[in-house]
Design a protein around this nucleic acid. Structure first.
Length: 751
DNA sequence: CTTCTTTACCTTTTT
DNA sequence: GGTAAAGAAG
């Protein structure tokens, strides 16, 4: 028996040593899931399974990398040979090998979401459809959703139900757009994120010899975060494991937070149908958190109806109560949290990396960044506008993409006039039309422009084509990714343009390009990467997840700021869940569009269970949104927590209200989220809210004096009309220079 | 064709 | 408030 097994509890040990046959592990939060998965792979290798024949699918590349390291510790360098990565990266790799079966070349481009939307925008325009009706985001989501259910463009068009749906939504042309989009991607030798999975399914469906090859190759298939896989992903793994039937899935239905992108909890139920001989093991003991945290999490998730039976418990100590912090504004919330972290760090002698601030949306990070910076606390932000989404980075990458794949329409559009060559939109459109008319590629037209078009702009176009050809020649001569990238940066004029820009942004862009070049150098120097071509680099870079961002320097002792979604799978000693306000968390959009409070609640559950020792909730009463102040109510989730576990004494600290304010507990109990009319009485010093009657504000105009139940008297300085949404900008006497944007309903006209 | 100005939309979450 | 598309002017 291997020695690492001794540290495991019984269900963990069973999961690790389970031999052949399907296995499902339902792993509660903090139950040592990663450990089990790691040991299980190590165990298989020790028992003679060839690492080459293990496929392990994880949620982020980083998770894969860490797991690989841990396995390496147990079984040695052989761990390098395991097929490990995200669904997208592993199947992109397979598609690259088998591209020709699908009519692609192995140099196919991967369109990110921006590319996809840009292409959709073009198509909607070309079809002369109203882009107010056909909103790119909506169209994109419809198409993406279809592909994740393995519905092709033709299926989509032939499906009466879907067509009726689209007609009802007054977007009957989505099917046609879908079809055109698919064709354009194919012509561009490009796949979007969904295509990587969709096309893998097609590959395995239509080319049995290919399916066979991989079915026999992978003796063991493991899927982590199984609750977040969609149908398309599930079918791939099911097919791959059909021969050996050694499929091991690990998941927790309580942590399913990606239904919005097609993840399907049903997969867990289907799994038992598809593999009737499955062995199911539940890991229910939490090793991560205090009893208070575990119990809090349980009290929250217990409200959900859709869930599997599971009893998460811990033998850890009770721990401290959960602090609840109330702030006047988002900025104050930032200051209070930053201060709390600073003090806690000093008192408990902790390091920055013990702390994480988790929020619902990326936009919330700003206030915390500012406050932490002022206190001199180092932090890192995961996600948000990632490095690879910055303009200058995408520009250089577009050059590289086009050099590798001249069919890449989106890359072409990006670089044809960058730096400025005097080639405008009209010319680009002319090229596109000409290409379509003659049924040739854009590159064919660009490369032989005089054959197709005559005009003044032919000279710069010829120069552009010559430039690209010179780059292509270098690739053929075997230059690696780094040599190519630095050569292109220098000779294309991109770097020069940024160098000449002496503004702060220009400087930072210049540095970003340098940083990208460093990253490429690292890629080339990394011995693990056998293929050092530009093409290989591009494939790897387009599938980085936002958890995969390189740390900007060696200083890893930083407070972590990120969305709850990004925090999945991580743990921190102290966790601050901030922005606990109705309409923010739970998100208004989620409630409106999908009416799915349960997924938001699972998200809350995930956030809570990230904490090991100490948890803090905070919310603000007002928040800047689109540059204007907006009033907020505490989240209903604060009421869903078993109140015994909360310490609300800190909610008073920030109150700049009168002595008459109620105790924080009373405040929490009285509040009724989502009903704007019944604010707690005591928060209005001027008018008890029960007496407050809004007057008819249809005649509200600038310069009028008004009264608000909470803020008292003020002067309307401006009327803000945004579509049907009319709001008043009111300057309040009490709030000093504060100007608030308020809906009419809460205002009473005086005089 | 470029540059400057105006307008609209935006904020869920991510591969 | 910040971006990106559209409009106006040179």
């Amino acid at each position: 028996m291997t020695d690492y097994l001794s540290g495991l509890n019984e269900p963990q040990r069973q999961a690790v040593t389970h031999g052949d046959g399907p296995l499902m592990i339902i792993a509660g939060a903090g139950s040592g899931k990663t450990r089990v998965l790691t040991y299980r792979i190590a165990y298989l290798i020790e028992n003679g399974v060839d690492p080459f024949r293990i496929l392990s699918l994880t949620f982020t590349n980083k998770a894969a990398g860490e797991m690989r390291q841990r396995i390496e510790k147990a079984v040695g360098y052989e761990a390098r040979n395991i097929w490990m990565g995200t669904f997208h990266s592993v199947f992109a790799k397979i598609l690259r090998i088998e591209a020709r079966y699908l009519g692609y070349t192995s140099d196919f481009s991967i369109y990110d979401t921006d590319d996809s939307k840009s292409l959709l925008r073009s198509i909607i325009k070309e079809y002369k459809l109203d882009d107010k009706v056909y909103k790119v985001n909506v169209v994109f989501n419809r198409i993406s959703g279809a592909k994740n259910r393995l519905v092709s463009a033709d299926d989509y068009l032939n499906n009466a139900l879907i067509q009726a749906d689209d007609a009802a939504a007054r977007m009957p042309e989505i099917g046609r757009i879908f079809k055109a989009y698919t064709m354009r991607c194919f012509q561009a030798n490009a796949m979007d994120f969904d295509d990587l999975l969709f096309n893998t399914n097609i590959l395995f469906r239509d080319f049995l010899e290919v399916l066979n090859k991989y079915q026999h190759k992978f003796k063991h298939v493991m899927v982590d975060e199984f609750q977040d896989t969609n149908v398309s992903q599930y079918l791939i793994t099911r097919k791959l494991s059909a021969v050996h039937r050694n499929i091991c899935v690990v998941g927790d239905d309580a942590q399913s937070i990606y239904a919005f992108r097609g993840a399907n909890i049903e997969n867990i139920l289907n799994f038992e149908k598809d593999f009737p001989d499955v062995r199911t093991i539940k890991l229910e003991q939490n090793y991560r958190s205090t009893q208070t945290i575990v119990n809090t999490a349980n009290s929250v998730i217990a409200r959900n109806k859709a869930q599997l039976k599971k009893e998460v418990f811990t033998h850890n100590d009770e721990g401290t109560l959960i602090d609840v912090i109330k702030a006047n504004s988002d900025n104050e919330e930032g200051r209070l949290i930053a201060t709390a972290i600073f003090e806690e760090k000093m008192q408990q002698s902790l390091t920055n990396s013990h702390f994480a601030i988790l929020y619902r949306t990326n936009a919330q990070s700003r206030a915390f960044e500012e406050a932490l910076r002022k206190l001199g606390v180092k932090y890192r932000i995961v996600g948000g506008l990632s490095f690879y989404q910055r303009k200058e980075i995408k520009d250089l990458l577009a050059y590289l993409r086009f050099i590798v794949n001249q069919q890449d329409e989106e890359a072409f559009k990006r670089i044809i006039n960058l730096p400025k060559r005097g080639i405008g939109d009209t010319t680009v459109a002319k090229i596109a039309v000409t290409a379509a008319e003659h049924n040739v590629s854009i590159w064919q037209v660009t490369g032989h422009i005089h054959q197709y078009v005559s005009g003044r702009s032919t000279t710069p176009i010829e120069q552009f084509a010559t430039l690209i050809k010179s780059y292509m020649l270098l690739v053929e001569q075997g230059k690696d990714a780094y040599e190519m990238a630095s050569h292109v940066a220098k000779t294309s004029g991109l770097l020069r343009e940024l160098y000449e820009d002496k503004t702060v942004e220009g400087l930072s862009r210049y540095e970003n390009i340098q940083e990208l070049l460093n990253a490429i150098k690292e890629f080339v120097d990394n011995a693990d990467n056998e293929d050092k071509t530009l093409s290989a680099f591009l494939q790897s870079v387009s599938l980085l997840t936002n958890a995969d961002e390189p740390d900007d320097d060696g200083d890893t002792d930083r407070v972590t700021l990120m969305t709850i979604h990004s925090a999945k799978g991580l743990e921190f000693r102290n966790v601050y869940i901030v922005g606990m306000e109705e309409d923010l968390f739970p998100s208004q959009m989620m409630l409106e569009s999908r009416q799915d409070l349960e997924e938001e609640r699972r998200l809350f559950y995930v956030a809570i269970t990230r904490a090991e020792r100490k948890l803090t909730f905070s919310y603000a009463e007002s928040r800047y949104q689109w540059g204007r102040l907006k009033m907020c109510e505490p989240s209903r989730f604060l009421l869903e927590v078993d109140q015994r576990y909360l310490n609300t004494s800190k909610t008073t600290r920030s109150l700049n209200e009168r002595e008459t304010s109620p105790s924080p507990m009373a405040f929490l109990k009285n509040m009724t989220p989502r009903s704007a009319t019944s604010r707690p009485a005591a928060s209005s010093a001027h008018v008890p809210s029960s007496d407050f009657k809004a007057s008819d504000t249809s005649t509200l105009s600038e310069g009028q004096r008004v009264e608000h139940p909470k803020f008292g008297f003020g002067l309307v300085s401006q009327i803000d009309v945004n579509g049907t949404d009319r709001k008043a900008v009111v300057k309040f006497d009490t709030a000093g220079e504060k100007t608030l944007l308020l809906s009419f309903a809460k205002l009473r006209i005086l005089e």
